[in-house]
């Protein structure tokens, strides 16, 4: 049973994160994880990379609060959030969210909840490197709608 977050410049290994989530655990029948990656097209711009900024001190705190909210709502055994910052290239991994629970409904819902709130609450900002130059990404209404359904 472990709950942790990490904000790091380095890449993460999904296999190692999965192993960490289920380590010494015989109860978790369900594991759900999500990986977000740098995609080539965003809002009809061709993207070659991203620069990701955060607010040290606050970002960690918000991620911990989001995780606490998820634990209060669902029966979770473990959860892990990893978010990268700094310079990222096309197809790089950006974020990992993983949860384990006895049953899949809790794991699926909690993973979605964590991602929805991470996207709308956690102080991270993306700047895209495109053919037209550098562009700060705008917030998406669909992300706001997604977090409001909880």
């Amino acid at each position: 049973m472990s709950f942790s977050i990490a904000i790091q410049a380095d890449d993460f290994d999904v296999g190692a994160e999965y192993a960490r989530l289920i380590e010494h655990d015989k109860r978790a029948g369900a594991v759900v994880f999500f990986v977000g990656r740098v995609r080539e097209m965003n809002q009809s711009r061709v993207v070659s990379g991203l620069s990701l900024e955060h607010y040290p001190g606050m970002t960690e705190r918000v991620l911990e609060q989001i995780m606490e909210s998820a634990r209060a709502r669902w029966e979770l055994i473990s959860a892990r959030i990893v978010h990268r910052v700094g310079a990222l290239h096309l197809s790089d991994q950006i974020v990992f969210v993983g949860v384990t629970s006895q049953h899949r409904e809790h794991a699926f819902q909690a993973a979605e909840f964590l991602m929805d709130f991470l996207k709308t609450q956690a102080p991270f900002w993306k700047k895209e490197i495109t053919e037209q130059g550098e562009v700060w990404v705008d917030e998406h209404q669909k992300d706001k709608n997604a977090s409001e359904r909880w």
Partner: peptide, 10 residues
Amino acid sequence: VAFFPPVTGG
């Protein structure tokens, strides 16, 4: 005190 634009992580 910090001022910042809407967040866009994930």
